[in-house]
Amino acid sequence: MEGLLDTLGLAEAASLLSLEPPGWGGNLLRGLVNSLQIALGAFGFGLLIGLGGAYGKLYGGPLLRDLLAIYTTVIRAVPELVLILILYYVGSDLINQAATAMGYDRVEISGVVAGIWVLGVVQGAYATEVLRGAIQAIPPGQLEAARAFGMPPLMTLRRVTIPAMMGFATPGLANLWLIATKDTALLAIVGFSELTLETRQAAGSTRAYFTFFLAAGALYLLVTLFSGTIFARIEKWARRGQPSLREGGR
């Protein structure tokens, strides 16, 4: 093994990337865990907002619909980086004002919570559109049947709407999840130590830029490819009752 690495000229890279302290592999993996944690949280938070937003856009009153249209348009037109900064400052200001009003000291917001809040609001706008489209794609008869049998709205949501729309929503949601994992890199700019920032620190202190950035790229790519297979499975499972949509789908 050592000889092979030596002949390929990779011995140095391997020692830099090793998991023990002289190498930086442990830092990279810790960054990856942080990134995934935030991506998962933001994706879940975004799904909740998206479900509410989709319901509001489909069944809400005219004012609510206008407000949601403004929300999704603004979020989709302004760069994530700018939104992250605005939401980060607004969020910490609001929490600190609430804390001082209730007589507590100023609180330091943890990076994970801030990241989830910020990326979740961004994801929510995209999720609203994805889920709205998916709910609209459900044959209306299914929802009418549920209502005709007197199902309460929440039960309809749980038993009919969500299972029936899963197949339509999964491709869009898979895309959103990939955007979430890649958007966590933006938190590097506000100084949160996720994978990209850890990589830059490691690269900066060892001057081995290519080694570390390529390694981080490989990690991101692994996550992407792995999620791709998972979502393909989920979609297959969610569509198990439906006729094949290969022809004339979308």
């Binding site: 933006l186 990209t196 690269a203 830029y209 950035f213 992407t224």
Partner: peptide
């Protein structure tokens, strides 16, 4: 696949710091 699977920020830094060094 590679371009779509990795964050743009990482690509920018790879090119700038990597090629730049």
């Amino acid at each position: 696949t590679i371009i779509r699977g990795t964050p743009l920020l990482l690509q920018i830094w790879l090119l700038y710091y990597g090629l730049g060094s």
